[in-house]
């Protein structure tokens, strides 16, 4: 099992750094949306939230983590390698022929549950998994990490209604609420203002947290997971797209901006000197 003693903040910083390194080697990857959910994934994977066995990715008793963020989960690559899902050498050939780690993670990667890339499918599939587990008497939990932009996809709302109807309290939606989709701030496109209240109106239990406070994320997720109260759970994590990269952080077009190699070099050098 995953040790709970790991320093989560240090781990999150290490993942941030590794993610930048991957992007420097593979500039085809989308970096900004992979920097906002780092603490979410660190809390899930190192914080004792997910029950998983890296040596047996398809372990039947595992908690299911459905990652739905498309391009925006490149930061999972160092995490899964670090945990032992696949050899760390894979990180050297992201987006390269013969590798398994693409610009969008696929389920050929040990540790990934489903197809990811076309947005808005994760929550529905996860709801089916949660229903199947419940009807089977299983005690495993299902987590979904979704971007806020992909909540524009209507199929999500079909699943949101479905999950509360069927009292899927083993289902947890974590929204990486960085407030920016590809062409700008969601408030200027189709707003998700008051997302927690909207989900509550649909029968979900919601918490709204600072998505970069990894310790708070950890404790909230552990609480939500333990609370089998007949309601699906949503954790709305307020995050910054492109976090920690000047010119990218919270920029309207962060999704399509590519930081220059020398900027990445100087950021990493400064980090070395830290």
């Amino acid at each position: 099992m995953i040790s709970n003693s790991v320093n989560l903040q240090e781990k999150a910083h290490w993942v941030w750094r590794e993610t930048l390194e991957i992007h420097r080697r593979a500039p085809e990857t989308r970096i900004a949306s992979s920097l906002s959910p780092i603490e979410i994934f660190v809390a899930l994977y190192y914080g004792g939230v997910l029950r998983i066995d890296p040596t047996n990715p398809r372990w039947i008793e595992r908690d299911r983590c459905v990652i739905s963020k498309g391009h925006g989960s490149i930061c999972m690559y160092p995490i899964l390698a670090d945990l032992g899902f696949f050899p760390a050498e894979e990180l050297q050939r992201v987006c390269k022929a013969g590798g398994i780690l693409g610009g969008i993670p696929d389920p050929i990667i040990p540790g990934y549950e489903t197809i990811n890339g076309s947005l808005g499918h994760g929550l529905g599939v996860a709801s089916g998994m949660a229903l199947g587990l419940k009807r089977n008497g299983g005690r495993q939990s299902v987590f979904v990490v979704s971007g806020d932009g992909e909540l524009h996809e209507g199929a999500n709302w079909e699943a949101i209604m479905f999950a509360s109807q069927h009292k899927l309290d083993n289902l947890h939606l974590i929204v990486d609420n960085n407030s920016i989709s590809m062409l700008g701030f969601t408030d200027d496109i189709v707003s998700h203002d008051g997302l927690a209240k909207r989900l509550e109106a649909f029968g979900w239990q919601c918490v709204d947290v600072d998505g970069h406070n990894v310790l708070d994320l950890q404790s909230q997720l552990l609480n939500l997971k333990a609370d089998l109260n007949g309601r699906p759970k949503a954790l709305i994590a307020r995050t910054l797209k492109g976090r920690g990269v000047p010119g990218l952080e919270n920029e309207a077009l962060a999704h399509i901006l590519m930081p220059k190699a020398d900027l990445l070099d100087s950021l990493l050098d400064a980090d070395d000197a830290r």
Partner: peptide, 26 residues
């Protein structure tokens, strides 16, 4: 009843729920 679900008039969800159930071995 335990292995029957009406998802409502929601074919997109019908497919995704079906996929999730199938992933769990149904």
């Amino acid at each position: 009843a335990n292995r029957f679900v009406n998802v409502g008039i929601a074919e997109q969800n019908l497919i995704n729920i079906s996929a999730g159930l199938a992933l769990e071995g149904y």
